[in-house]
């Protein structure tokens, strides 16, 4: 089963490197990893998707906690949450195929972000499964280039993961 973990990291040199090196060293299988800024300056947020069948999720959490600059790690898999992946895909699209592609994009709520005579770039954000389905549908048209960002996740409701770390000192930085 896939697990989605969210980790808060202090913005210190090497903190991402430390995390990644930890996964490699301990043989953890990481399916996707994204890092970005948060509402608090000085704190980054990492979202990890792990295959829980081949990797002990508990060990990933505990080993991450051992890194001095890791503030918090949370397994949000079981919590109601919003998980989003972003897709950019360049599809072979001669004029005869354009309208069909545009219809498919429309159904999925995707955006056409670039069109040239025989190609089209489509942008779609959604759950990873949604993206998988869309990619399967447009594959017959001929995918020329594709990139996905990996998942970011946030739990639903008013409570936050970063609560205790939104202190003044981090805002000041």
């Amino acid at each position: 089963m896939k697990h989605t973990l969210v980790a808060l990291l202090r913005d210190q040199p090497g903190v991402l490197n430390r995390s990644v090196s930890l996964f490699r060293r301990r043989g953890f299988n990481i399916e996707s990893l994204t890092v970005g800024h948060t509402e608090t300056a000085g704190i980054s947020r990492m979202t990890l998707v792990i295959d829980g069948d081949t990797t002990s999720v508990e060990q990933v959490i505990k080993q991450l906690y051992k890194l001095i600059d890791v503030l918090k790690v949370s397994d949000v898999t079981q919590d109601p949450n919003v998980t989003r992946d972003l897709l950019l895909v360049k599809v072979y699209a001669p004029p005869a195929k354009r309208s069909e592609l545009m219809q498919l994009a429309d159904i999925f709520g995707a955006k056409i972000v670039d069109v040239v005579p025989d190609a089209m770039m489509i942008e779609l954000s959604g759950s990873p499964e949604q993206l998988d389905r869309f990619v399967d549908l447009i594959r017959p048209f001929g995918i020329r280039e594709m990139v996905r960002t990996g998942c970011v996740a946030m739990t639903r409701g008013a409570s936050t993961i970063s609560g205790p770390y939104q202190s003044q000192e981090f805002r000041a930085a």
């Binding site: 040199p13 090497g14 490197n17 430390r18 090196s21 930890l22 060293r25 001095i68």
Partner: peptide
């Protein structure tokens, strides 16, 4: 050296 010793230190600094 901080790169080399990353997995074999509890923490390190440059």
């Amino acid at each position: 050296v901080t790169g080399i010793t990353q997995p074999i230190t509890k923490h390190n600094y440059l």
